[in-house]
């Protein structure tokens, strides 16, 4: 469905100056600053997959999505989305993808929600009967009826997000980019968004690329994640493989030797052991040599694993 190889995007902007005549110097300067937003990124996504595309703020996630939608051209590398090169076949590619940005809305602020949906229907040439069936389905699935005729500015964030989701899938694109679709939502609204993603993926075999900072979204929806930071891919694979690591025993000792049984003391004065089989035996043997002040067992979870990868 999506094939990305050696994707690189370098932004070249005039250097900005500070100081009394900074703005003027910025205007006339010939000096440029280059920032590499995406650096040699490669991945493939199959039809029907739900991928978590994760990374800290400024990692290059949005730039990648803008390239995949055909709005940006890359500096180098090849991209194929559903058999098309997004920035060359921009118009055809646009019909294949739906986009939701949690931080922005494509809905017209001062008009009733239904008007924005009609606009989407006409911009994507959805014939009237198909529009009606599609809208009917979405009204049930997202509970739009209560606010279909309300101006968007009067909607709650949760309602607005449901409206944005409806606008993104109205023309039934085979591919959906969701950029933080649950940002700022309460628990119930988040749940509704997740259920909708699951349903859309299941019913329409829609491929979903999900960007989020809420790892609960990822755990609920994705089997596979791609982690990027500073424009580079840090991890690409199944969540299970990532989380399926040994539990850990964390020990604090009265005396603080440099190392215990080959494990060095960490910055917080703790000793972290990987638990493989015999936990009681392990504790007993440590207790035999040292006075234990405190200890705990850490289950591997996505958040700490990802934090570990970012800080590596």
């Amino acid at each position: 469905m999506i094939l990305v190889e050696g994707l690189t995007k370098v932004f070249r902007r005039p250097r900005t100056f500070s100081g009394p005549f900074g703005a003027l110097r910025t205007l006339v300067t010939r000096q440029h600053e280059e920032t590499t937003a995406v650096d040699d990124v490669s991945f493939g996504i199959d039809e029907g997959e739900v991928i978590g595309y994760l990374g800290p703020n400024g990692a290059g996630k949005s730039t990648t999505i803008k390239i995949l939608t055909g709005i940006l051209t890359p500096t180098s590398g090849t991209v194929e989305v559903n058999g098309l090169v997004p920035w060359r076949d921009r118009s055809a590619n646009a019909r294949n993808v739906g986009v939701v940005f949690g931080q922005r809305s494509q809905l017209w602020w001062d008009l009733p929600l239904i008007e924005s949906l009609r606009l989407v229907g006409s911009l994507y040439d959805v014939p009237a009967p198909r529009f009606e069936t599609s809208l009917k389905k979405l009204r049930d699935l997202l509970g739009l009826d209560a606010f279909l005729d309300t101006p968007v500015r009067q909607l709650s964030l949760g309602q607005r997000m449901r409206g944005d989701l409806a606008a993104a899938v109205l023309y039934e694109p085979p591919l959906l980019y969701l950029d933080e679709p649950t940002v700022g939502l309460d628990v119930l609204a988040k749940e509704a968004v997740r259920e909708f993603i699951v349903e859309t993926n299941r019913l329409g075999r829609t491929t979903v690329v999900l960007t989020t900072h809420d790892l609960a979204d990822v755990e609920a929806l994705c089997k596979r994640i791609i982690l990027i930071d500073h424009g580079r891919v840090l991890f690409d694979g199944a969540i299970d493989a990532l989380v399926n690591q040994p539990r850990r025993l964390v020990v604090l000792l009265e005396s603080e030797p440099e190392e215990v049984r080959g494990v060095p003391r960490d910055a917080e004065g703790r000793y972290v052991f990987e638990i493989h089989d015999d936990l009681p035996g392990m504790i007993a043997s440590i207790a035999a040599e040292h006075a234990i002040r405190d200890m705990s067992i850490q289950e591997p979870d996505l958040e700490s694993v990802i934090k570990g990868i970012y800080t590596r």
Partner: peptide, 17 residues
């Protein structure tokens, strides 16, 4: 506001819209 992103992502030309 960056909303222009959505206009550019449409299959219809920007000026026409």
């Amino acid at each position: 506001t960056g909303m222009v992103f959505f206009d550019l992502a449409r299959p219809v030309g920007y000026l026409r819209q």
